[in-house]
Design a protein around this nucleic acid. Structure first.
Lengths: 229, 229
DNA sequence: TTATTCGAAATCGTATATTATCCCGAGGGG
DNA sequence: CCCCTCGGGATAATATACGATTTCGAATAA
């Protein structure tokens, strides 16, 4: 029996986890060049496991790869951001609808608590915290979805959006209040056992509204700059 | 300029393409053990590119990996098959709805032709061909969807289902006729510029119906065996 | 007979070494 | 002054080598 009952995750796995963490924490921001040798040295391993880790991240869409040039953290331009938001609207809507029937009273209480916390933080608004709590809120509502595959896809899409600090609420703080109110409505629908497609519509429109806020906010900066300029 | 205008796709890429092709063509069927060294030898390369290829396939869910043991083509049990079908219903519904507004007359004609071909092949029914044409039909309807990310996800999910020859029509040939009829309805909705959510509902229910046929067909074999036993 | 231990074969995991490719700057024509 | 060509440095791509782990069968003891 290998006494390594501890862990010994493979180096490839460690590399994967580490790089992903760096990306999520914005230590590696979009466009950052991932140099195999230097990452390998930092982690005290050879380049082989690092390459494998990067391949996996590539397949997940977190990094882009160019032959003979190397990998970099994916740039997600406004267009791709919109695409991912749209996809997330669809996936999360479906996942939440499927989850609704299995939501427990504790889940609802937890979600309510999270939403209350978001409501409370509307003054002293911190986009970072707000976004995280928002994520947690939706995760709680969707987590009872029995379709594991769907859950995975929701997670991947969240991560894809999250690695941009672009989290919409940084751009559109005004959207936060409306968001909290829509959360109330979604909770109400679930609590009253509304039809699944009503839940789905509500969640999808909730996210679609967030996307619209983001998109219209990309127009205004031009004007704002024109004022200050 | 490198006169290698030819191609020279990287070996890692070649390995990826080759393995994926083997899986899709059922040369490597679910559960097949992917041995690095033998694949490397077959392709005339070392194991390193093969490992990278497998890591990418792993991230896509086509193969599963176990530490110190190796990779094998993913087994997709009935449950996972259902999950993927459900996900595909959601994704394809959304993609087709978004695509509908941009569908050209040629696209419609092409789709109609494909459906006619499916209808014609109802006698001399060949599940394999029918499934392929069915795939092509839906691809044509969804391909104008401007959301690239959504298109990618639809493709991945299709591939995930496809590498099982389980293609539902092998189990439930009776479903084929109903399927063709539903295709007519979907075409009609798109042609008459029905609202996007009507198209989405139609496509989703179309696939959900296929899934139901599959699920109920998994009950009957027991009875059939009881008769013959 | 059955359970257990030992060991060899197969295969994976990782490091190191070698080759190929790209990027960029310096130097030579036009 | 600008364009082209030619190296050198950085880095990726691949090969080879070796150590580590699992697997499985055979030999042995209960």
């Amino acid at each position: 029996m290998p006494l390594t009952a501890n862990a010994a995750p493979s180096k490839a796995q460690r590399a994967y986890d580490w790089i992903k963490a760096q990306i999520m924490s914005q230590a590696f921001s979009p466009g950052y060049r991932l140099v195999l040798a230097s990452i390998a040295e930092t982690l005290g391993m050879s380049v082989v496991p690092v390459r494998e880790a990067i391949r996996r991240l590539e397949a997940e869409g977190l990094v882009t790869f160019e032959r003979n040039v190397g990998a970099r953290v994916s740039m997600v331009d406004g267009e791709q951001y919109s695409y991912s938001m749209e996809v997330l609207a669809v996936l999360e809507g479906a996942a939440t609808a499927l989850s609704a029937a299995h939501i427990t009273a504790e889940d609802l209480a937890h979600a309510r608590e999270l939403n209350a916390s978001m409501e409370a933080s509307l003054k002293n608004f911190d986009p970072q915290t707000f976004t995280e709590t928002n994520h947690e809120f939706h995760r709680v509502l969707a987590c009872r979805c029995p379709n594991e595959r769907l859950n995975d896809l929701v997670t991947v899409e969240w991560e894809r959006l999250n690695h941009l600090r672009t989290s919409t609420f940084s751009f559109v703080p005004e959207r936060a209040r409306a968001s909290v109110n829509e959360h109330h409505q979604i909770l109400h629908l679930i609590e009253t056992h509304a039809p699944a497609d009503a839940v789905e519509r509500a969640v999808r429109q909730h996210r679609a509204a967030t996307l619209r806020s983001y998109l219209s906010s990309r127009e205004e900066p031009d004007e704002a700059q024109r004022h200050t300029a």
